[in-house]
Write a protein that binds this DNA or RNA. Structure first.
Lengths: 259, 259
DNA sequence: AAGTGGTCTAGACCACGAG
DNA sequence: TCGTGGTCTAGACCACTTC
């Protein structure tokens, strides 16, 4: 078993915090490596002369920090970091589309991960207030809704939903499940729309229970939300894409001119 | 008191989850507004015929989702959202520096918040491996370290630490507590460096206990980490700035060319 | 079957905040 | 002083995983 010290009952610091501190230190020093199992709650309770509830309180804190995950019937494990997907500043460069690669695949290739897409759903619906505002169409206007889930090395890392005005999508593969080489942006350019730039709005928050389930996330891990709007050269919005990403799976990179 | 239902003891769903569900719904429906106090743990325990520990478990979940905060001796309150600071894509435009505004103040002006900076520390130190790599200097090279905390409407929202190579900072106000109008970027340009662009790397995670303390954050709220590197026209890094932001206080906006 | 974490009880004492 | 949340005990039974 681990070489753990003892708690100081006279200390001001709550004992469950002291236990969490000791375990956190073992993890951060690397004495407990990703994938390693922590001593069981009963073992820890016995070692520290505390009840299981107090030990659980300590472990709950570590779960909330994202350091460990618990698996019912198996144990508590140091969290193994998923592959970090670095989203490069040039990921929407035209040369990638022309080479027949959709953005997600272009990224995966750069970082050497295995990429998958599943749970693709496509259909028409009336625009909600928020989507309508971003697409500069009237509320309730017909839009194509495309949602899908991305996986890296078999693990879900992102849930994305795109909205495209009906007249942009009509008669193109954007209405189909499979949008063909280069993805929907390639189809838009084929249809005569020239993409000019994207605006991305990035934030972070805790996931809703549904998002946690959909992305197979352990509790206490945040998500990055990214809303991307694609504009043509006339500043017309061609697409809004709402994404929820498992936070620790991503580093987003942007290049900002000083001008 | 609130019009709360009862739990279903026969349900598969744990009763503490059912309690959390009911409270969450009240909050999301707006029946409990930001700043409102929830019924006390004892009141909830009595209402639901559960022990306080079970009620606390439900409330813990809501805290982890960032929906409520607890205050010792006062109660549990629906979290009041801090002002959201939208970081615009052009926040480092030269015209802002020339107008004598540092980036943080430029943003604050745009969004109509009161901005403050405190806990400013300046000093020389040897570059760590990570900083040295980003600044393209050798590990241990002398750099100026500038750290400070930003507040919006009096609430801490960001902790930032900048590193500047010694030869860039030497003899300028970058070595001083007060860097003067336009901030360190203005001083760099005065000293003959021409800023070309910035690269920002964005991610999100749960804060460490120290970060939580420093930013006065309630438990269960994530942070956005942003590392910005400033380059001159010769692609030389002039500054690395490591920031930790309270996640729900920020929306970062970027403009990405389609090439 | 044995060991693990998940849930829940029924108490206790403490520290903090407001009146 | 009183009500609030914070901590902790000493159990119990359950669900899940592994063997």
């Amino acid at each position: 078993m681990l070489n753990l010290g003892q708690v100081d009952r006279a200390s001001d610091r709550a004992v469950y915090r002291q236990v969490a501190d000791m375990l956190r230190e073992k993890i951060q020093r690397g004495e407990l490596e990703p994938g390693d199992r922590l001593p069981s709650e009963s073992e820890l309770a016995e070692h520290f002369n505390l009840t299981r509830m107090t030990i659980r309180h300590a472990i709950q804190d570590l779960k909330n920090e994202g350091l460990v995950i618990s698996e019912h019937g198996r144990g508590v494990f140091v969290r193994a970091a998923p592959p970090v997907r670095r989203l490069a500043a040039d990921r929407f460069a035209r040369r990638h589309r022309q080479a027949g690669k959709a953005a997600f695949l272009a990224e995966a290739e750069q970082s050497g991960h295995m990429a998958d897409v599943d749970r693709i759903e496509v259909g028409y619906m009336p625009a909600t207030a928020d989507v309508a505002h971003r697409l500069k169409v009237s509320e309730g206007a017909r839009v194509v809704r495309r949602s899908r889930r991305y996986l890296a090395n078999g693990r879900p890392v992102e849930q994305a939903t795109s909205y495209v005005p009906a007249d942009v999508a009509a008669g193109t593969a954007i209405e189909q499940l499979n949008t063909g080489p280069g993805g929907i942006y390639a189809r838009m350019e084929e249809a005569g729309h020239t993409l000019s730039h994207f605006v991305e709005e990035v934030s972070a928050r805790m996931p809703s229970p549904e998002e946690r389930r959909s992305l197979d996330m352990s509790p206490g891990v945040p998500v990055i939300t990214l809303v991307r709007t694609a504009y043509d050269t006339a500043e017309r919005p061609l697409e809004v894409c709402d994404t929820v990403k498992v936070a620790h799976a991503y580093v987003l990179e942007y290049r900002v001119p000083a001008q």
